[in-house]
Simulated scan of single mutants.
Amino acid sequence: MAHTVVIAPDSFKGTIGAAAAADALAAGWRRESPDSDLRLMPMADGGEGTVDAFAAAVLGAQRMPVTVTGPEDEPVAASWVLLPPTPDAPQGTAVVELANTSGIELLGTPPRLRAFDSHTRGFGEAIADALAHGVSRLVLGIGSSSSTDGGTGMLTALGARFTDAAARPVTAGARGLGSVAAADLSGLAPLPPGGVTVLSDVTNPLLGPRGAAAVFGPQKGALPGDIAVLDAGLARLARLVDADPETPGAGAAGGTGFGLLVWGASLVPGSAAVAELVGLDAAVAEASVVVTGEGSYDGQSAAGKVPAHVGAVAAAAGVPVALVGGRIAAEADTSAFAATASLTELAGSGDAAMAETAWWLEEAGAQLARDLDLR
């Protein structure tokens, strides 16, 4: 009897996307267990690879190319995904991600960090393209941001106007927030009929010591002396619009979560929403085993990350689940998993694992197939 294996990893950030990771794990598993029926369901939590995950996991999904203004004003060839019609979204659902339109990965390797000048305009342009297509609903992934502009670039692309005391449009990026004096939202595009769902695994508020500037600003090039300036700019924005900066997730993606609240969107935990949209529960219910994973599995991974959610779905269905990690921290609790594989241990070092991630994921897939022995 052929066994059904659901392979549902997150991306291994900075090295390989979720769809390619699932392919590599499947190749290794197939080497050891060629008769297994493999169901690839790459996952995401709203960050890089969200569009790729939906394109790979949902039957009938269409990739829609679009050229947008990148975070440093350069043209960027991006795409969003059109999901097939459903009863609650008769004109289809558009999945748009910030990472491939305004993300930090677009700033080069290593990234050319521009704490005050990067912006989210391209993300807004991709959203506008999806709206022009006439979709019934939007699903937006907002991880991997390059900016701290509070989502003003995105909102500007959707029809908002942010001006200074002289009624002039403010400079793009966080730099413009220092002089913003008025927000005209009357020209904002209306929400689609089915609303806007925002995927994020971040619960930080917009402002303060846990806010967008303090927690995520340094990742984008902000120096210690810049944090207060960035936070003050975000506070100026918050005073001009009708949204609560304390809402969990408002600080996500440099405050883009807050900007989307201003538009009227709903913020939800990314992993669970993606799982629901791709039909993970139904697939797991028919599986003999599930394989999941992420780049670094540590003590925080149980808090809403992809492996924890996939593991919970598998546990509820009584299906064993295996874990692959780029690294698996010593303090991480892996007792819920039937088997584990660490790419760092397989490769001999973290650097070696990151240099050839696809190769070592294939080896991990083969190892797990041997360990679980479904023949």
Rank of each mutant, 00 (worst) to 15 (best):
V321A: 15
W359P: 01
G259Q: 14
A341I: 10
A56Y: 05
A126H: 03
Q91V: 01
A18N: 04
D88M: 02
T101E: 14
V319S: 13
V262H: 05
D333C: 00
V76K: 13
V241Q: 03
G134N: 14
V310C: 04
P190C: 01
L372E: 12
A283T: 03
Y297D: 02
T4G: 08
S33G: 06
P71I: 10
M41R: 15
A160Q: 01
G195R: 00
I16R: 14
A214F: 04
D149E: 03
A341G: 13
G225L: 02
G304E: 13
A172T: 09
F162E: 15
G251P: 07
A174L: 09
L40M: 09
L237W: 06
A57F: 11
A157F: 04
T171H: 06
Q219N: 07
S288T: 15
S271D: 02
G325D: 13
P111Q: 01
D244M: 11
L185M: 09
G124T: 05
G325F: 11
V170Q: 09
P307R: 07
G221C: 02
A167R: 13
T50A: 12
A24G: 12
A238D: 12
V95P: 14
L107F: 06
D129M: 07
N204D: 04
S36H: 15
V274D: 10
L199G: 08
T292R: 07
G14H: 01
E276C: 03
V324R: 12
A19Y: 14
T256W: 05
A20D: 15
L131K: 11
A347K: 03
A302T: 13
L361W: 04
E331W: 02
A19N: 00
G173M: 05
V262P: 05
A214I: 06
Y297Q: 01
M154P: 09
D23H: 08
D351Q: 11
A18K: 05
P71C: 09
A302H: 03
I104H: 09
D231N: 07
A366K: 10
A232Y: 07
L280F: 04
G325P: 06
L177R: 00
G249R: 03
L188N: 06
S79P: 02
A232H: 06
D298W: 11
A285I: 08
R114K: 10
L237H: 13
R30N: 11
P193T: 05
R63G: 04
L346A: 04
H3E: 10
E72F: 09
G92C: 07
G28Q: 08
V51Q: 02
G60L: 04
G217Q: 11
